[in-house]
Nucleic acid binder design. Sequence first.
DNA 1: TAGTCATCACTAGCATCAGT
DNA 2: ACTGATGCTAGTGATGACTA
Length: 411
Amino acid sequence: MLIEDENNLDVEMSDNELNDEQENSRKSELESMFKDIDHLNEPSCIDNILMSLEEIRDEDHLFMELLVERVSREEITWYQPWYQQSNSLTRPLKCSEKQKNAEPFLTDTISKAESDRIKKNWRKFMKKYKVPDQLISLARWKNKGKSRLPNTPEEQAKRFVVAYLSRGLERTLYQVFRHIVTYYGSPNKGPYTPEEEKIMEVCFEYHPNHAVTLLSSVLKREPRGIYKRLQQQLNVKPDIKKMKWTLPLATKFLKLLLKYTDLPLEKLKNRSIEKSVFVKLAEKFEHNYTHLRLFWYQSLHVQLFVEEHIKLNKLRKRAFKKLRDSSYQVWTDIRWKDFVTQFPEGLTHRFLYIVCRRVVCSIPDYLKLPLQDLTEQALQKIRKTRYRKLRLKRLCLNEDGDLVKISSTDW
DNA sequence: TAGTCATCACTAGCATCAGT
DNA sequence: ACTGATGCTAGTGATGACTA
């Protein structure tokens, strides 16, 4: 019987080191594809890309063969909650009425702690089954040209690994697999570099039909991101002017909002408003509906419904102290909708987020720092700031139905 | 220099379609 | 019955130009 010793797993590279390494190898890979090539139509360019694709496919293929060999006779012996017993990794779990009352699983974004747990499970798995550290291959391997029945060796192996990685998590196999695919399968994130754009161009020139899947492999990016980028390049951008919100404009906005929702102002507080309403508003304002929606939830809602004069930095101080003492581990763990309930009425989660983020966004690596450190730094920054008395402007409707400012000297 | 605004990008869900 | 490819959405997150 193999004893799994968690304490032996401590020797590992920190995340940052790993990321830097990946980052560097990615850059040199992409650069080598374009070495000495100035003209996009150079066939050697697409050759390089295709070669790189081949390498990736081979790598994944070999890894899967090894995996099948190592786990083909393994059976699941550990306890599995009902929601981990499904056979499908690529479709969300459908629950029957009965199951909805059973032991529940989480549905929000996977937190830092959960992600670490998956990593830990993977290290155990590697050790026990003697496979290389190549989760990326599992993540991007596609069952093509083979039977897709769930009991083929490859599918079984894949399911076994994912089930193993899901141990101890209140998540479905689908959720864990999604997490693996996004975090390990397409590790390249952020804006597209000029090299990447060149590669995209070349691929579309030579292989328009498979360009997206090809690019997703070679660039190690999510296919959806590539689609989106493509659309941006093809589409003539609609000419949206910058918008400057003024009291008259906000008045017009609010009047229309009241009209389209057919509700009195008080009823709009904390209410989620249908998209169609914002789409109608967007037509009137000739602006993106998402922007208008953001304006409502991030600004106007707060200014209308907050019942006291708020000093921004006082609010921040309070928020960061609460965050420091919370159970959240890193910034991205924060569930703003839950968090905002601890604050005065009228504040929205988006407002709170934007106000707090202002402080931390200039702190290097703020998304990864332990929240305790981050909040300490944030509190220090707030203490040092010069504009400590900034208050939130509050607004109300006067008798004519126009928005006016509530003077803060009344308080 | 803090706040505003626009825009790009990613995450995680849902849906549909064709292929095996 | 299940897959991959593709599309859409709400919610988050990053960044840079502009402004008060």
